[in-house]
């Protein structure tokens, strides 16, 4: 587990928004997807995932609906709201500026 990186504060929101932008997903699947796509480099703690999901719903970026999962179980599916889609773009540009800035600093020293 030492090769897995803890997420920087605030990036989890972006990852969640970006992940469910493709299709509505439930909590477990979101965690799995982030892990898979990042080649197991990023690991989402349940302790932060669910509060983050509820916070995003509370802020109106995402909405939740009960549906049936791929294993025929009742699950809570999260999808982006209209405002959420705009938010993804905002968060993305914010992230790009941040990482660019960090990279620049690292490259010059």
């Amino acid at each position: 587990m030492s090769d897995q990186t803890d997420l920087i504060q605030g990036t989890l929101d972006l990852l969640i928004l970006r992940t469910i932008a493709l299709e509505p997903m439930h909590g477990w699947a979101i965690a799995q997807r982030i892990q898979q796509i990042s080649d197991e480099l990023l690991r989402v703690q349940q302790g932060s995932l669910y509060p983050a999901l509820h916070r995003l719903e509370h802020q109106g970026w995402i909405t939740a609906e009960w549906g049936v999962s791929e294993t025929n179980r009742r699950a809570r599916f999260y999808s982006l709201t209209k405002a959420g889609r705009k938010q993804v773009a905002t968060e993305l540009s914010k992230w790009e500026r941040l990482s660019a800035g960090v990279n620049l600093v690292l490259a010059r020293t």
Partner: peptide
């Protein structure tokens, strides 16, 4: 109740995996 079910579902799904 929903919160409890949601978290339980997560554990169940992980167990299955």
């Amino acid at each position: 109740a929903e919160l409890r079910e949601e978290l339980q579902q997560h554990i169940d799904r992980e167990t299955e995996r």
